[in-house]
């Protein structure tokens, strides 16, 4: 197990290196220029000013030199300054990281709290009206885009209660009510879609396990149905569910672009999209590396969890 863990951790390095190289190349292939963009709102900024600023930002250096600077920075954990704002990239990310983490955790908790019981009930009550209702509910979550649900949620709150979620983020330890009254809405909207995927997965996974011999044996032993379902069926059907939930969690970390915009949540997804649009190479590179790291790390944790949840899985 130890060797497996060390091996997996070491494998992260080439993966992240590959991501870094790809991001560096793709950003420079895409047309556009951060300096020209920064001055695009005024028609009176001459080309020489733009050229001079490009020089100052190091954008006129040969690509191999820019790449060497970037790699040197990664080794030193120095991701440089944002080309758009001039502030350190780590500072730009730090301010939004807590919000994205909290939103991802809240959404995951809500999704899991919905998906596990609903999925199990749907499986146990297969083909009954309860199953159909849950199916409609979960397919609805898959079919409706989160941003649309978000707009609907805000409109409903404004129209019915003349109230909208707070515009400014307050950390949960400063004011839990204010914090939750901002983040609960996007978490609900995202959590609903997220729960839909997990509910479907839980249902099919539990259904498969319910037909296994050991479940029949458990029932034959006279165990209570709740014990059969929770201890025997659910636990053994959790592997695919955990995979789905974890990967969704990793996605939520930076993938809530539109939902963040709709709810005006100052998270990492919005930051990434703005950075791409502004051709802020340094910020995009750092963010993509961060998201990749989260993905790779969450995958690694899931693989380790497999062994914990299912004793038959052994890593050599």
């Amino acid at each position: 197990m130890q060797r497996y863990i060390i091996g997996r951790l070491l494998l992260m390095v080439p993966t992240l290196l590959g991501v870094a190289i790809l991001t560096f190349v793709i950003m420079r292939v895409v047309p556009g220029d951060v300096v020209a963009l920064r001055y695009s709102q005024s028609g009176s900024v001459p080309q020489e000013v733009i050229d001079r600023e490009r020089d100052q930002l190091g954008l006129n250096k040969p690509l191999h030199e820019q790449f060497a600077d970037f790699m040197g920075g990664i080794v030193r954990f120095d991701f440089g300054n944002s080309l758009w704002t001039g502030r350190p990239v780590t500072e730009e990310i730090k301010g939004r990281l807590g919000i994205s983490i909290e939103l991802a955790i809240l959404s995951t908790l809500l999704a899991t709290a919905l998906a596990l019981p609903l999925g199990v009930i749907a499986a146990v009550k297969q083909d009954s009206w309860i199953d159909y209702v849950i199916r409609v509910f979960s397919i609805g979550g898959l079919a409706m885009p989160s941003f649309w649900l978000g707009i609907l949620a805000i409109l409903t709150l404004v129209v019915l209660f003349q109230w909208a979620p707070p515009l400014i983020f307050v950390p949960i330890w400063d004011d839990p009510i204010e914090n939750l009254s901002q983040l609960i809405w996007p978490a609900l909207v995202v959590g609903y879609r997220y729960s839909a995927v997990a509910t479907r997965m839980t249902r099919s996974s539990v259904l498969e396990v319910l037909r296994d011999d050991y479940v029949r044996t458990a029932r034959a032993k006279g165990l209570r149905e709740t014990v059969v379902i929770v201890r025997h069926a659910l636990r053994n059907s959790l592997l695919p569910v955990i995979t789905v939930i974890s990967l969704e969690f990793a996605f939520l970390f930076g993938g809530l672009v539109v939902t963040e915009q709709v709810f005006n949540v100052n998270g990492l997804g919005k930051l990434l999209v703005d950075a791409v649009a502004q051709r802020d190479y340094t910020l995009v590179q750092a963010l993509v590396l961060l998201f990749s790291f989260v993905f790779v790390f969450v995958n690694f944790i899931v693989d380790v969890l497999y062994g914990v949840l299912d004793p038959r899985i052994r890593y050599g």
């Binding site: 707009i151 805000i154 409109l155 709150l157 404004v158 003349q162 109230w163 909208a164 707070p166 515009l167 400014i168 915009q261 709709v262 709810f263 005006n264 100052n266 919005k270």
Partner: peptide, 19 residues
């Protein structure tokens, strides 16, 4: 000064008198 990029959220902010 609150930064809001999304036009729908801007309208909601005025409508709810948050801004």
């Amino acid at each position: 000064a609150v930064i809001i990029g999304d036009p729908a959220r801007q309208t909601a902010a005025i409508r709810s008198k948050q801004a």
